[in-house]
Design a protein around this nucleic acid. Structure first.
Ligand code: ZN
Ligand code: ZN
Ligand code: ZN
Ligand code: ZN
Lengths: 134, 134
DNA sequence: CGAGATACCGATACTCAGTATCAATGAACC
DNA sequence: GGTTCATTGATACTGAGTATCGGTATCTCG
């Protein structure tokens, strides 16, 4: 995980700490959450590093309808997100059919298509279970 | 456009002003933009009314990667947005194929699909023209 | 290794979108 | 017209993110 070095950035203790932290995380996390777990790292540095990692494509940001944006390790190249509307947990999915369809729609629309972003809103299995058992 | 009255809200001067303003708008607009055009309406009231109109389905919010969220009159029932990555202008589109596909994908994914949100990132014709003429 | 250039750091103060509070107002209903 | 209570605007606040800046650590090169 020498993404930053590869891009000409320095390897520093705060950056290593942040990268190590988010490698462990399976779910999405907020910037504030990183700060809580790494109290020795300054707030500004957290936002700076998150921005670097975004640009490097290591993580992706998810702007949810309310609440702070969530970040998540991006495990595969191009992908989209599932978001549980109850608990806010974030997952990833990929579907070649979508990509093909979005390319087709891009052709039908005035202007030049350059990308897209898709969110699938779900109620995750865990939340379904909790709802049942109540 | 008696959306608010229909939902049991009162018809007040600020609310009428805001609704009149955004009926004229073809493109997306920000909350701050409303305030600039309606300086007599208090800031809090603008946000309050925007929230009401969101809940009523009259407008929709678009959380762009950076910058303030944009709102736009929602002209048709269920739709998705095109966003120009240069100028930020917002459009709407609909495609039955997408809806069918998203339903199918929802079935393949753990949890219960309850909705989705799709953004098509484009460079709009106007921005393409400007780029050419330079 | 040692020195110099400079990227990076944390603390702090700031911006900007949105929200809570609250006294005053004015719709709605009779 | 009078009562009620939703709504208003001013103001103060929150919370995410950014600018600034003096000090520090990393890199590079000799
Ligand atoms: Zn992702
Ligand atoms: Zn895609
Ligand atoms: Zn819309
Ligand atoms: Zn454009």
């Amino acid at each position: 995980m020498a993404v930053l070095e590869d891009r000409g950035h320095r390897s520093t203790a705060p950056r290593r700490a942040i990268i190590r932290f988010l490698q462990g995380k399976q779910e999405g996390f907020t910037a504030e959450e990183i700060g809580r777990e790494l109290p020795d790292v300054g707030r500004a540095t957290i936002f700076r590093t998150v921005k670097l990692l975004l640009k490097a494509g290591v993580i992706c940001r998810l702007n949810l309808p309310d609440g702070a944006p969530k970040y998540s390790l991006s495990r595969v190249e191009h992908h989209h997100h599932t978001v549980c509307v109850r608990c806010g947990n974030v997952g990833e999915f990929r579907a070649a059919t979508i990509e093909r369809l979005m390319r087709a729609i891009g052709g039908d629309i005035p202007g030049e298509a350059v990308g897209h972003r898709i969110e699938l809103h779900i109620i995750c299995n865990q939340c379904l279970l909790e709802a049942d058992s109540r």
